[in-house]
């Protein structure tokens, strides 16, 4: 009789304890203390008799995602994505954050959110032509509009500009500081060569001319390279901007 009573009391106590843990996990989550939330959630998962596996795994995935551990988050979402819609949405987000666009393209989206993420992935993969809007969703259209605003710089124009006026190619690629500095690296030896020509010092004149030539070639290469990396760099910046923004597409789904 005594034993049964003790077992009963222990069961009741454990239920109370785990219920408190769940609430405590939620509290920690709201406090952005993801490390301890993970501990609490794992404790619940390990110790309770019938744990809500899908929800706990989804929450664990969300915690890892918030922590920046995308690989572990992907593992959790991948495990339950076929049985839980929230996890499936989060799986899409995790793939997008890791730039695993190929994997996204191979999965058939099940709802609007997943479709929108797929559209944005296609946008960053360069699959849409300029001013092409595949959906009427406001947020997606906003992202598309801003993306289309990113300019592309032509390498040939940059080289031509630099060939005419050294530094102009870098100006064209919005690198004013580099443009001014590279212009001065060419102008100074050019003036020096003229000066040595004027005082008839031929060895120094040839030295200054070669220096001008070397920096001129470097300037052409620099202009070409600046134009080449302009779009990828700005695209990457915009990517970082949208994943850290408040767009509902990139907000994870979860429930305690």
């Amino acid at each position: 009789m005594k034993k049964i009573l003790i077992i009963l009391i222990a069961m009741i106590l454990s239920n109370i304890l785990f219920a408190e843990n769940y609430e405590f996990a939620e509290f920690l989550f709201e406090e952005n203390d993801y490390y301890r939330t993970i501990t609490e959630l794992k404790k619940i998962y390990f110790m309770s008799e019938n744990p809500d596996t899908l929800n706990i795994k989804n929450l664990l995935g969300v915690c890892y995602l918030k922590k920046g551990d995308y690989r572990t988050a992907e593992m959790y979402f991948d495990e339950i994505k076929d049985r839980n819609e929230q996890a499936a949405n989060n799986y899409f987000i995790t793939l997008f954050l890791q730039k695993k666009f190929d994997v996204i393209f191979n999965i058939k989206p099940a709802n609007e959110k997943q479709t929108n993420i797929k559209f944005i992935a296609q946008l960053f993969n360069g699959e849409f032509k300029k001013c092409e809007f595949p959906t009427e969703n406001k947020e997606v259209n906003e992202i598309f509009t801003d993306y289309y605003k990113i300019k592309r710089k032509n390498s040939a124009i940059a080289i031509a500009l630099s060939a005419i006026i050294p530094g102009a190619g870098r100006f064209y690629c919005d690198r004013v500081g580099d443009g001014v500095f590279s212009f001065s690296t060419i102008l100074i030896p050019a003036i020096a060569s003229y000066f040595y020509y004027w005082i008839d010092n031929k060895p120094f004149m040839y030295g200054a001319i070669s220096l001008t030539g070397i920096f001129y070639i470097g300037e052409l290469y620099g202009a070409y390279n600046s134009a080449k990396i302009y779009f990828p760099a700005h695209e990457r910046m915009y990517y970082e901007e949208i994943i850290n923004s408040d767009y509902s597409i990139f907000i994870t789904d979860y429930s305690f």
Binding site: R175, G177, D178, S182, F215, G222
Partner: peptide, 19 residues
């Protein structure tokens, strides 16, 4: 390397996280 010499100026700090 010549391009790098021309990029080595104080403006470089403006391009951190962009380039």
């Amino acid at each position: 390397s010549i391009d790098r010499l021309q990029r080595c100026n104080h403006a470089v700090r403006e391009y951190l996280y962009l380039y």
